[in-house]
């Protein structure tokens, strides 16, 4: 889970662990990419608005790398502009959730994507 807000990572990790998932957190795009390379997760939850490297750039790099391109990515965003969502989907994201999100909705989205 990549998000520049450590509290969000902490909160969501708790929820996801309770649902039976194993969670690794990263506080930025660069760190996220490194961890994704290392751990090859089954799913990436990616924040859109982050300093340094934003979610869309990070997404592009995940999809450009043959080793990670198959990993599904779910965008987590405070943006509600349809154009941004559209761009993320065009770049290969599997879906998106808008902050603040409903845990049940997030869980069902994850369940739908996870193999």
């Amino acid at each position: 889970m990549v998000d520049d807000e450590p509290q969000i990572v902490l909160m969501l990790s708790g929820r996801l662990r309770a649902l039976g998932y194993e969670v690794q957190g990263a506080s930025g795009g660069k760190e996220g990419l490194k961890k994704i390379q290392e751990h090859k997760p089954d799913l990436v939850l990616l924040d859109v608005l982050m300093p340094a490297m934003n979610g869309l750039e990070c997404l592009t790099q995940i999809k450009a790398n043959p080793e990670t391109s198959a990993i599904p990515v779910l965008m987590v965003t405070a943006l509600v502009q349809p154009a941004d969502v559209q761009r993320a989907l065009e770049k290969g994201a599997q879906g998106y959730v808008t902050k603040p999100f409903d845990p049940a909705q997030l869980a069902s989205q994850i369940a739908a994507i996870m193999p």
Partner: peptide, 16 residues
């Protein structure tokens, strides 16, 4: 936009 992050944290905390 700025309000969304703290709102997410609060909502998630309460729901958990």
């Amino acid at each position: 936009h700025e309000l969304r992050t703290p709102m997410t944290i609060i909502r998630e905390g309460i729901s958990q």
